[in-house]
């Protein structure tokens, strides 16, 4: 086995109602320093973590959705979002925040990190991981 493992962070819970989404993101940020192959999966209620327009002023809890946009700076380039999960919840890709990374292999061009994939493709992503961390 090579030194680099494929880490997959699986997010299936909505933000704010519980702390899992925030503390998952904290693991991703720390994990980025370990130079592993990192991907994030958003399915089921996890897709709600990436919606635009979150405003937490009224509930007095920190809005951490802007932190997702910083993931590109941490060289996290793969945020897989399941299409079926979006559709079941009346959402489309347009409802999601934008996350970009700079591709060092392509003259540092900015590219979207969010990739909307089918359920079958999501299953492939999961089956390709070495380490699955579920939140």
């Amino acid at each position: 086995m090579s030194d680099v493992k494929k880490f997959l962070y699986v997010n299936r819970k909505a933000p704010y109602g519980t702390i899992y989404a925030l503390e998952s993101l904290e693991v991703v940020l720390i994990g980025a320093a370990f130079e592993q192959d990192v991907a994030l999966a958003f399915l089921d209620d996890g897709v709600f973590q990436l919606t635009k327009g979150q405003n937490t002023d009224g509930i007095g809890v920190k809005n951490f959705s802007p932190t997702f946009r910083a993931l590109g700076d941490y060289d996290v380039q793969k945020l897989y979002v399941e299409r079926e999960s979006l559709e079941e919840r009346g959402l489309s890709e347009d409802d999601l925040i934008e996350v970009v990374y700079e591709d060092e292999d392509d003259d540092w061009e900015e590219k979207p990190a969010i990739k909307v994939v089918s359920r079958a493709e999501m299953a492939d992503v999961m089956a390709d991981a070495d380490v699955v961390l579920s939140f």
Binding site: V10, R12, K13, M126, A129, D130, V131, V132, S134, F135
Partner: peptide
């Protein structure tokens, strides 16, 4: 038996 299943398969994924 749980431990054996973990060892037998390449990865474990928890659906929490």
């Amino acid at each position: 038996g749980f431990v054996d299943l973990v060892a037998k398969h390449d990865r474990t994924q928890a659906w929490l």
